[in-house]
Structure formats: structure tokens, C-alpha cells
Design a protein around this nucleic acid. Structure first.
Length: 798
DNA sequence: AATAACTTTCTTTTT
DNA sequence: GAAAGTTATT
């Protein structure tokens, strides 16, 4: 890197931070602003300084008051930039710590930011700052202010599991059943309605399908159940602050005054509610600074609205826009590949990424026979680079589209004796035994908590089965009580002696610890109730290795609680612990010091970087996922995901695909991903060092048409004919399952078909591709229907 | 009536 | 291959 030349405006900012840093480190104050000189001064911290300098080129100039939009590519140090801005505000005396609100999306990013701030301005300042994920910040605020909208500070936070428990109850009560009305569908419809801030009343009017009709029926009762349970789901954590602010403008004013500077990381991932609450909070001082990259928007599925970042300048007309286009991370080869990926997308802000880094080695494409082979090749390649080039294991990351793919990779790494860690997936706090134990604690803290009560009322088995629970539920609804209140009036319910005794015993158990909650410390409380409830006994009942691990996990939980109580200085209440733990979905044990290969989903990789990266499973139907293949917007999101994955790599990038893969419990043949056919092949070499021969004609690029294929594999996965998957092979092979069939599919308009339920009919039209393919059929009995081909199980007749 | 054993279904990403 | 749903057993 050449000598660094600083823009004049940046000097004051830089000098303050650097002097501060040198002060802290106790090293000399004389330094030349060249990389070489600072490297001499102190090799370790010089790296930090250099990082800082790199990131400060333009943002120093825009470290002014007023709204700021920072658009930046991957590897340009976005989060770092934001951190330095905050440091600047403090360093320049513009703001005091508690006047700054910094919002991130992952706990990981929040932690990273806090660590950097600590380094730059000291621990004291960092502590006073409101810095964290949207969800954790608002949980914290609602602990303080929630009573104004009907929640006690002990409210429970419901994750997907819990909300589905509540919904299942409601589906019973409102008689929503049938195959297509499953809990997951209902939950996701309600959740996206909430994300878009559509109220139950508004939603009822928008209903356009039977599934939506059922969801509309459940939406309002669902919200009422949560309120009654003194619980909020993840969506509520964003919506309730808005509700609160609208209802009580005094509270809004308080926080508007308090937070003079609002900072948001990964702005492209904000949803409508987050946009609104940010705008509310920044309305007085109008010092809002957001950082993001539209090309890395990969969370539309959970309501992220890329429009927020695209229209920032319209929302804040006098905003300063800063573009950071220099990439400090990857080689030219990798960046070129990444650029060729994202160029395929139509919806994007034009950015020209560039780097001063070396050209680097070619990106390597590897084909494998099976997923097992893919995993072994990955393992061998890691070992090879590790041994021959001396890369430590922590320099490697293996990325995949779905969590299920980690299994074969783990197998291969374990077999090869290579240490690894898995990020994300099921974190400690999401394991069943942990959630069971936590449910007891949540119930003690918040007895209204319906989901937790349902979770543990018969675990371990104590004779309160479905029937009994149903009776209790019905009584509760009839009397307008919570389930817990029903247990307190168990005599009035009219149960059999046996059931009543069991229920009463359970109530007494919980009540005992509710009253003990004041006297025992949190960890003692946890240990005792877990023991007395019989969880330990249940896990030791039979001596399977799984149960042993579970038993250890539960023990570990009590340690974690003890640690939490010991470490947190402020009100380290048990309920605060329980709330935080629910929000900690990223496997948090990310000890970076460990020298291990990292396995994770592409989503989880965002914001990270590794010298060597493997992107596995580049196959049609998997990446891009079949559901996304027929919709341009979804396909573009998959492509951005590929882009995110590729730009994690600093020096080496490997693209892997397998010709067959186990899916749905069956071996299925696979076609390599269309993404491979559309990228810049000039930077790619095959395993043997050959040029990569693309088959461009295989897929129509996204620019042409609406993502349709031209005369090619309409199915991405085809079952091998051998299938002895279900015992009744004869029956299923006699039946012609359409999506299983060869080129073009056997159906065409005019054909006569038969459906299990609807009977005989005539095909009118076909549309969509692969798993999304739909067929319109006119049935004699029931008239015209549009069916998803994959599930319709149509049989040709005549 | 509760629970264990078996069968069928449905497969994404996460705060 | 896991989870939900169904049937058989206690």
C-alpha cells in the first residue's frame, strides 16, 4: 500500500482518535501518517489504525450533522465506518454516550461495534450507549415503558416455536384444519401482515384466498392471546414501540430528545416498521446515519424492504450521500467474479467496485459425484491448503444454502480430523431440552405465559394429556381466564379426580417457585425447579448418549444463568435474561480464538470474511432454491446471496456442486446451478486447471423474458427410477407423478387427467417451472381449478 | 385416557 | 430425515 494521503477535513477527526488510541496504549505520540511508520510504532495496533484510516477516506468528510446515507460495497468496511463516526461524535464532543442510538441486525455486529468503540473511546463511554439489535434495544425500552401499553416488564418474548404453539391452540378453537391450513403457513401470513403493519381489520378486507381467509380469522385472536399472555413475538418488538409512541407522545418526545444521533447498520434489511420507528426517533434532531448495500439485501423473506435504502434521499431530502466503492478485502479475481454475479440483476444501484489488491488466484470450480464426495473434496482441499501453504483452520469457511447440508460436511471433517464449528443453525438456546427448562423459568417469571405453560404442563409426563388440556382450555376461554388462572380454579373446571390431582400438583409446583423467586438467586431457582420438575430424572431415565448430552446442556444452562447474574451490573433480572436469550439466535459461542473451520449458511456469513471460502451445493433447486427459480425478484435475491457468499473470500474461492444429492430422504440427481452458467468464466479454473466450459444456452438469462427456460430441464431434481423409498413401490410406480417425468413433462393442454379428490378433468393450461409449476384443469364435478403440479398427483387417463 | 410405536408429510434463509 | 399425524398398546 502506498503512502497515505489524508483529506484535509479528516485531520482533526483522525488526530483525535489516533491520539486517544496512542494514549490508551501508552505509546509515542509522534507518528508519520504512512503505513510503514505506524507499523514500526506498534505492529499490532498499527493494523487497527490502518483499518481505521482505510475506512475514513470519505466518511470523515461527511461526519457532519444531518441525515447521512452511506452506500457501500462488500469489503469496504461499512460497520467500521459507522463505528468511527460514533467515535468521532464522542471525540469531537458533539454527543455524549447516552445520546447515541446504534442499531444493528445481529448480535454479532453489535458486539463487534461495541468492541471497536471501546478501543476507540474507552469502556466507560461504550457502556452508556444504547447499542444493539433492533429487537434487543426495543425489548430493553419496553421493559421500561411497556406498562403504558399493557405489558409488565416481565413480558415473555415468543420465538417461532412459541407462536406456533399459540396458533395451534387457536386453530383448534376456530376449527381451522385441513391439509393446506398448516400452522407454519398461518404464522408466516400473519407475520408478514404485521411486518407490513396491516392490522387485523385491514387484513380481513384484503383476503383473496382460502388460506388468507383462515389467517384473517386467526390474526385478531392471535394478537389478543399474546397480550393476555403478556408476551410479544419478534414482530411485536418492532411494532409495540410504534404503538406506544403514537399513543403517548410524551414518551416519544423523551426518546427523541435523548437520542440526538441515530445510527443504523445494514439499512437494506430494515422492514417498514423499522423504517417508521427510526424516522420517529430521528424526527427532532434529524441526525440519522444509515449504512447499507442494496446488493446484499437477502432478507426480503422476513419483510426487509429494499425500498427503504433506495428512497432514503427522498425520505430525507437534505441527506449527504457517501459511496464507498473501494474493496479492501478480496483479490481482483474474486471481485470480478462477484461483479459478474450481481450484474445479472436488474434491480440495483449502480456501483463500480474496485480494489488495489492483487489479481490473486483463479476461482476454482469443483464437481462432485455426490454430496458425500463434495464434502470429502472440501475436506481434502482444506487439508491441502493447510498443510502446503500453512493456512490455519480458522482461515476457512464452508458455506451452504440450507442448514441440512451441514451434516455431510461435518461427517467428512470429523472423519478427516479437522476441527470445525457451526455458526447459526440450532444455537444452544434453541435446543429442545434448553427450551423446556427455560419454559419453566419463564412460567415462574410470567405465569400468564401461555406458550410456556403448554410446553411444560405435561413435560415430563405427569398425566395431563391432550384431553385434559383441552378441557382446561375450553374452560379458560369460556371464563375469559388465562390458563394459569384456570389452574388456580381447578375445582370449578369439572375434571376427573385423577386429572384434577395431576393439574393441582403441577400448579403447586410452579406456585412454590413463584413465591421463592424473591429469595433465591436466579441460578439456584433454575437448578431447583429443573430438578423438582423432574427434567434431570427424565433425561437420566434411559442412558442414551443423546440424553447424556441433553443432561449436560441443562446443567450448562444453570451455569450460564449464574454467569449472567454475576456479570451484569444493572438490574440483572431473570426476566431480562430470558428475554435476551430468546433473541440470541445466532450461535453465540463464536470464540474466534479457536482455530477451527467455520461452517454456516450463506445468510449467516454476511459481514464476515475469510481467506478461503467454499460455496457448496451450487445446484438447481438448491441454490437457487426451487421455490425461488420462477420468480424474478426471488431469483434476484438468491443471486444476491451468491454475491454475498463470494465476497466473503479474501484470497481463495471454491465453487462446488454435486451431480446427485440426498434430499427428502432420497438420492436425487442434480443439475448444476444456472448461476454457474452466467458468471464470468475467465477467472474460473476447474479442478484440473482447465478453463471452465459454460453452457450458456442452458438457461435464459434474467434479462430476457420473465426468467423462463428455453427447452431445458423443467425439473431440477428428478427421482432416480430405482426408488424403493416407500414400501409400496408397486403402487407409486404405477401412478404417474407428473413432475417426475421426462423432458417437457407429459402434460399438455387438452389431455384428460384424474385427480384423487376432484375426479376427472381436462387440462386447460400449464404455467411456471419445476416445483412451482401449476396446471389449470377443468373438472367435471367441481369446475375449474388451478393446482400445483408437484402436489396435484394427477394421473393421465385415456 | 395416556403414552408408545408406527406412518405420513414436507421440506429455506432468521431477528 | 425430522416433525406432525395416526394407530396400537398399556
Amino acid at each position: 500500500m502506498p503512502i497515505l494521503i489524508l483529506p484535509a477535513i479528516a485531520t482533526q477527526f483522525l488526530a483525535r482518535i489516533l491520539l486517544h488510541l496512542f494514549d490508551k496504549l501508552g505509546c509515542m505520540r509522534q507518528f508519520h501518517l504512512t503505513p510503514e511508520a505506524s507499523a514500526d510504532a506498534n505492529p499490532v495496533d498499527a493494523a487497527e489504525i490502518l483499518e481505521g484510516l482505510n475506512a475514513m477516506q470519505q466518511e470523515a468528510a461527511s461526519a457532519t450533522d444531518g441525515p447521512v446515507l452511506i452506500i457501500a460495497g462488500p469489503g469496504s468496511g461499512k460497520t467500521r465506518t459507522l463505528t468511527h463516526r460514533i467515535a468521532y461524535l464522542l471525540g469531537a464532543g458533539k454527543a455524549r454516550p447516552f445520546e447515541i442510538l446504534a442499531l444493528t441486525f445481529t448480535n454479532k455486529a453489535a458486539r463487534e461495534m461495541r468492541d471497536r468503540i471501546k478501543k476507540l473511546v474507552g469502556e466507560e463511554a461504550a457502556r452508556g450507549m444504547w447499542m444493539g439489535t433492533f429487537h434487543s434495544i426495543f425489548a430493553r425500552m419496553l421493559r421500561i415503558e411497556g406498562k403504558k401499553i399493557g405489558y409488565t416488564p416481565d413480558f415473555s418474548i415468543y420465538d417461532t416455536d412459541d407462536t406456533q404453539r399459540v396458533l395451534r391452540d387457536l386453530m383448534d378453537r376456530y376449527h381451522v384444519d385441513g391439509k393446506q391450513f398448516n400452522v407454519r403457513a398461518m404464522r408466516s401470513i400473519i407475520s408478514s401482515a404485521k411486518n407490513q403493519m396491516v392490522s387485523p381489520g385491514e387484513y380481513e378486507k384484503m383476503v383473496a384466498s382460502p388460506v388468507q381467509e383462515k389467517a384473517a380469522l386467526l390474526y385478531r385472536p392471535y394478537q389478543q392471546s399474546l397480550l393476555k399472555a403478556n408476551a410479544m413475538d419478534f414482530d411485536d418488538l418492532l411494532l409495540k414501540p410504534i404503538e406506544l409512541f403514537e399513543k403517548d407522545t410524551q414518551t416519544l418526545k423523551k426518546y427523541q430528545q435523548r437520542w440526538r444521533y441515530v445510527h443504523i447498520d445494514e439499512y437494506q434489511d430494515t422492514n417498514h416498521a423499522q423504517f417508521l420507528v427510526a424516522r420517529m426517533l430521528a424526527a427532532v434532531h434529524r441526525n440519522i446515519c444509515v449504512v447499507g448495500d442494496d446488493a446484499q439485501s437477502i432478507y426480503a423473506f422476513r419483510g426487509a424492504d429494499i425500498g427503504n435504502i433506495l428512497s432514503f434521499q427522498r425520505d430525507y431530502p437534505n441527506a449527504t450521500t457517501v459511496r464507498l466503492e473501494q474493496n479492501y478485502r478480496s483479490t481482483k479475481a474474486i471481485l470480478r467474479l462477484a461483479d459478474s454475479i450481481i450484474k445479472q440483476n436488474k434491480d440495483q444501484i449502480e456501483k463500480t467496485l474496485w480494489t488495489e489488491n492483487v489479481d490473486g488466484e483463479a476461482v476454482v470450480l469443483k464437481e462432485a459425484i455426490s454430496e458425500k464426495d463434495e464434502a470429502q473434496k472440501t475436506e481434502r482441499t482444506i487439508r491441502d491448503i493447510h498443510v502446503r501453504r500453512g493456512y490455519p483452520f480458522k482461515d476457512f469457511a464452508v458455506l451452504y444454502r440450507t442448514n441440512a447440508q451441514s451434516r455431510s460436511l461435518e461427517d467428512a471433517l470429523r472423519r478427516g480430523g479437522i476441527p470445525y464449528r457451526i455458526v447459526g443453525g440450532q444455537s444452544f438456546y434453541q435446543r429442545r431440552e434448553i427450551k423446556d427448562a427455560l419454559a419453566y423459568l419463564r412460567l415462574i417469571v410470567n405465569p400468564s405465559d401461555l406458550a410456556s405453560l403448554r410446553r411444560v404442563i405435561n413435560y415430563p409426563a405427569r398425566g395431563i394429556g391432550h384431553k385434559t388440556q383441552e378441557v382446561l382450555s375450553t374452560f379458560a376461554v369460556k371464563e375469559g381466564l388465562t390458563l394459569w388462572q384456570t389452574l388456580e380454579r381447578i375445582g370449578d373446571v369439572g375434571l376427573s379426580n385423577r386429572a384434577r390431582t395431576a393439574a393441582e400438583k403441577f400448579r403447586a409446583l410452579i406456585a412454590k417457585y413463584v413465591s421463592k423467586a424473591g429469595t433465591l438467586s436466579a441460578d439456584e431457582l433454575a437448578r431447583e425447579i429443573i430438578r423438582e420438575a423432574g427434567i434431570f430424572d427424565d433425561l437420566r431415565k434411559d442412558n442414551t448418549p443423546e440424553n447424556l448430552v441433553r443432561w449436560e446442556n441443562v446443567n450448562e444452562l444453570t451455569n450460564a444463568i449464574a454467569e449472567f447474574v454475576a456479570n451484569s451490573s444493572e438490574q440483572a433480572t431473570l426476566s431480562a435474561f430470558l428475554q435476551e436469550v430468546t433473541l440470541m439466535t445466532d450461535a453465540d459461542e463464536g470464540e474466534d480464538s479457536d482455530n477451527k473451520v467455520t461452517l454456516m449458511t450463506l445468510h449467516a456469513s454476511k459481514g464476515l470474511e475469510f481467506p478461503a471460502v467454499f460455496i457448496t451445493g451450487l445446484e438447481e433447486g438448491l441454490f437457487p432454491l426451487s421455490q425461488a427459480a420462477s420468480d424474478r425478484k426471488e431469483l434476484e435475491e438468491e443471486r444476491r446471496l451468491f454475491y454475498v457468499g463470494a465476497t466473503r473470500a479474501e484470497k481463495h474461492l471454491f465453487l462446488m456442486y454435486a451431480r446427485s444429492r440426498y434430499r427428502y430422504g432420497d438420492q436425487q440427481t442434480a443439475v448444476r446451478s444456472r448461476f454457474l452458467e452466467e458468471i464470468d468464466a475467465s477467472v474460473i479454473r476447474t479442478e484440473r486447471g482447465d478453463n471452465f466450459e459454460q453452457r450458456k444456452d442452458r438457461f435464459v438469462t434474467s434479462q430476457r423474458g420473465k426468467g423462463a427456460f428455453e427447452g431445458l430441464d423443467p425439473h431440477y431434481y428428478r427421482k432416480k427410477p430405482s426408488g424403493k423409498s416407500n414400501g409400496k413401490g408397486a403402487v407409486s410406480s404405477g401412478r404417474r407423478i407428473v413432475y417426475d417425468e421426462g423432458e417437457g413433462g407429459p402434460l399438455s393442454p387438452g389431455m384428460r387427467v384424474e385427480h384423487d379428490l376432484f375426479g376427472e378433468g381436462k387440462v386447460l393450461a400449464l404455467e411456471g417451472q419445476g416445483d412451482r409449476a401449476k396446471v389449470t384443469v377443468f373438472f367435471k364435478e367441481v369446475g375449474q381449478k388451478k393446482l400445483v403440479l408437484k402436489f396435484a398427483k394427477l394421473q393421465r387417463i385415456g
